[in-house]
């Protein structure tokens, strides 16, 4: 049988094609989710869902609207870079309605402070650190330091309070007997506002030479080198770490 003179097998083929095409369209409509492909090879709706998840950390600006006392203190203190919620925990619900949630108040000794301030050699130098075991034990930290303005009650006496890593390195080195001031002139202000009054660092080979040069007027036990021939083109501390010199 021929339809409009078209070969039988072509008609069959056309019918088949139509069925397969129809089924594909139906399946796509069934399985491809609604907003798929609107903005790319994904569900556009997923972006909206991701953008509408609940916020739990409100951010420090909002806290300041009601707690201006704490904010005023914090803003001028060493803790100016700290978000309120890093100590008080996520408090968006509290900021929305202060009766709905009581933020954490970490009063116990070390509860909030030690994650940041306990001595660890891996922390950057200059970051203030204490050894909890030795630093005024048993009393809560907030007894002496207001957490919103933790300025120590007295100016720290030793360089080690902030440069613990250097102090500890030096203490096991041949330079253990040298005080920091042998090589650095640190103004007293450096201990109050460290970054605005940086101490100086040795700049020339002679700084080491005054003890280690052949003819230097220094202790007999100190090993000597000839400044003219010993690593002449470099500064001494390009080869020796000054706080832990090794030969």
């Amino acid at each position: 049988m021929k339809l409009w003179g078209i070969a039988d097998q072509v008609v069959r083929l056309a019918i088949l094609l139509a069925i397969v095409g129809g089924v594909t369209v139906a399946l796509r409509a069934r399985f491809v989710p609604p907003s798929f492909g609107e903005t790319g090879h994904y569900r556009a709706e997923a972006v909206t869902i991701a953008a509408e998840l609940p916020v739990r950390y409100a951010g420090s600006e909002i806290c300041a609207e009601c707690h201006d006392d704490q904010e005023e203190l914090r803003r001028r203190s060493y803790h100016r870079g700290l978000s309120c919620e890093v100590c008080h925990g996520a408090a968006a619900a509290h900021a929305e309605d202060f009766e709905a949630q009581q933020p954490l108040v970490p009063r116990a000794r070390g509860e909030a402070c030690l994650a940041c301030h306990e001595y660890l050699p891996s922390r950057p130098t200059g970051f203030p650190q204490i050894i909890e075991r030795l630093h005024n034990p048993l009393e809560p930290c907030v007894g002496c330091h207001d957490p919103h303005d933790p300025t120590p009650p007295e100016v720290p006496s030793s360089c080690a309070a902030c440069h613990a890593q250097i102090e500890r390195t030096k203490a096991v080195s041949h330079h253990l007997a040298l005080t920091c001031e042998t090589c650095h002139e640190a103004a007293p202000e450096h201990r109050i506002e460290p970054r605005s009054h940086l101490p100086n660092k040795p700049t020339a080979r002679e700084a080491c030479g005054r003890c280690h040069a052949e003819g230097a007027d220094s202790g007999a036990e100190i090993p000597r080198v000839d400044l003219d021939t010993h690593g002449p083109r470099y500064l001494c501390w390009q080869c020796h770490y000054p706080h832990h010199p090794e030969a």
Binding site: A50, A51, V55, R56, Y57, G59, G81, V86, C116
Partner: peptide, 23 residues
């Protein structure tokens, strides 16, 4: 990590950046 997509689209910082004490 989504960079806290729900925060950054509202102009807030990602939570990790918000609490980082040293910048």
């Amino acid at each position: 990590c989504t960079f806290c997509y729900h925060r950054i689209t509202q102009g807030l910082l990602p939570a990790c950046v918000e609490v980082c004490p040293t910048g």
